[in-house]
Design a protein around this nucleic acid. Structure first.
Lengths: 237, 237, 237, 237
DNA sequence: CATGAATGAGACTTCATTCAT
DNA sequence: CATGAATGAAGTCTCATTCAT
């Protein structure tokens, strides 16, 4: 089982849900987009990330994003059907990039406990490399998340399922082979994500980014190592 | 040391931080308020909680809150100095009520590990009783938190410190007497809170509230029981 | 000709115009008002004067006036048909009181030039005694004056005529007996009033009230003494 | 010393005070403004002047100004950062234009008494040409002046100093060379301005604009000519 | 492909006024 | 006679979006 295939599929599933959240659905998005258009979209998404990370989602108006990108408001509307699509693009881009960054690191491990540690560590290392991206993502998922979700049971749950899928997969495998103890995989996955999502706000507050990352890697991996491992001494180590 | 005094003091410390976030600080606020006024304020706060829980903080406009309460926009302005004061009241009310609910349950336990379990359990039992309150509180602390935080190191950190103080206290005590192992109390407290704050969104999505609460109580207490306890000598190293 | 009768008549004429500016015209106002009612009205008017003088007319809301008086908003509405009537009462009260204060001082002089000096001096001495009243009056006549005047030629002109009448009378008399030179009495009266109305804003700015009053009395009387007196050396002195 | 340089500098000083009254101070404002934008700004400023002159400052809401200009409310916000900036622009525009109009006329005179007459005459001639502008300006400086002034000694005094500076300069020069007698230059300047500011309200009331202007030019110049000139030796004492 | 002018909805607040008690 | 609860209008501002150029 390669990580590259497994979770990326799941992520793409997630992204389809995200994309499906808005009615205006361009044919695919990968099709007839010129080079310039793609470059502009990338530039705008980058500006949006910076703006959201610095000013917070509620203050990230199209105007602010545009001026951060050095372009006009209208140009954003030209390239994106609306603010919702832009935000979706931001989330998608960060997810895809994050998966590319984290995938190999998790794939490098063979046993589920090590994969879990790698998952946590890779997430936080990605934050160390791109703090503004993760800050932005958390902003979007908190501030914008509830604002967007209107049909409670459908979309939001699906998005969550997609987000948690990689972790749930690790837990299932580990429980099957006895590396992990007995717990609800989905609930545990949610706790891991919540723990990881604890970090971006700290990065906004604490200037010593490296220390924050290091401490949290140590503590979070330790917590979930203990929380998930099988209890029987014989099985352990 | 009774829990009644200890964490309530801490919570009041938190509330002072919350109140201090806004300049207009009435002498006490508890003074000459008529019965009708108090009733209206309570009604408006309740309507605000419902609105925030249902529509999310960003969509909880004064208009929506007013119409949920069946009153006019102006009446809210008559009873509250502004939206900020209303939101502060909502947060304060939930915190105070939550402290009243949870205090005795935590106080009933004498040893830190049991206090930690009681803290988690009491939080989630309170959510079972008042799910919309906790949804609203999380909305406020996420959506509004980032929106408000302009001075990075001052307010947000102070509010967080206040929120985490009771847990940090438990951890310090338990580490001192050997009940708990070695970990960073503040980071661990943040993880516990993050785990608990995982639940309100689930309540919005899953109609089977009791099952959600039960499962999460079981899993979260188990996770942090394992994560915090002192290592058995034979397991160590 | 006694000053007491002459200008007071004119002022009452002015006041009738002022009162006529608003449709709601109680029978007379002097009639069936109880003692308590009169006391309340006086108290409210005094609070309005203070509030306007301190906060400026635009900021002098009914709420602020009420709380300055230590009573409720509704009580003002009970005693006055509306804000317009209250403001009219304020203007009327100040005018009447000012006339009572200044009348005898002007009447004490027999020749028009001395009456003019007395008029100016008495006005400024009244400001020294009751600066807040004059500040309030100027506030009302500037900020509120234009806001109220809707029919250009009718009311505003009438009010102005009434205001200037005493001075115009002095000038007519003085020109008839040769004490004054040749000039347009109404225009000159307007200049005298404008000069006097220059002082209240200075009182708001300069804490040394006495110096301000003294300097202005000296300069303004000197200016209009020179400006109005007959030119022929023989007639002069 | 040319008048063109002297008072324009002073006026610019005044404008700096006005501009400094509001925190948001664009680098220059003269920079990259398109032709259309400049035209719209001019149109909006013109509409604001008309509205203020007709309805009075307190009734000159953004809505009224917009509908007078035949545009939407939002468009004003698009071109001006807020109402304060719009009003500042109005004041600035009138001042600059007035200075351009009046400067040469005053500069044409060499001796201070003639300059004073020219100052008064030019002011009133400008009112003849643009009565609504002066009405608006007086409205702003009275109604808005008191509304804005919160710090007594700072802004209001500074603005007043700037306004009076040109006249004070004339008086100082004239007193130094013996053309003027002994009086307080600042107080006298205030009286001259008050006299001039007497005229705009008359224009609102009297349809015969030319007569009003002519009479006031004659009377006001005469009054301050007499009031300021050095006393003839035989008249003295 | 890009701009920026323009709109209109919506949010928060202030305020004068009314009315039941 | 007095209170204070309540309303609704009006005002300023922000913002996403549309559209002519």
């Amino acid at each position: 089982m390669t990580w590259n295939n497994f979770p990326l599929d799941q992520l793409i599933g997630l992204l389809c849900y995200i994309l499906a959240m808005q009615p205006k659905n361009e044919p695919d998005g990968q099709k007839g987009r010129s080079f310039i258009e793609e470059a502009r979209r990338t530039q705008i998404v980058a500006a949006a990330i910076e703006t959201i990370a610095e000013a917070g989602y509620p203050r990230a108006s199209m105007e602010r994003i545009a001026s951060k990108a050095g372009i006009s408001r209208g140009l954003i509307s030209y390239h994106f059907a609306g603010k919702a699509e832009l935000i979706r693009e931001v989330a998608t881009m960060i997810y895809m990039d994050g998966a590319t960054f984290m995938g190999p690191r998790i794939e490098a491990e063979t046993r589920p406990p090590a994969q879990l540690r790698a998952y946590i560590t890779a997430n936080l290392e990605y934050m160390r490399a791109h703090p503004e991206r993760m800050v932005a993502l958390v902003e979007i998922f908190t501030a914008a998340g509830t604002a967007v979700s209107s049909a409670p049971d459908t979309e939001a749950s699906a998005v969550e399922d997609g987000t948690l899928a990689p972790l749930v997969g690790i837990f299932h495998t580990g429980q099957a082979n006895g590396d992990f103890g007995d717990f609800d995989p989905k609930v545990m996955a949610r706790l891991v994500r919540a723990a990881i999502d604890t970090v971006p706000p700290q990065l906004s507050r604490d200037p010593d980014r490296d220390r924050v990352i290091d401490v949290n890697i140590a503590e979070i991996t330790k917590v979930f190592d203990r929380a998930t491992r099988a209890l029987d001494p014989k099985e352990h180590q």
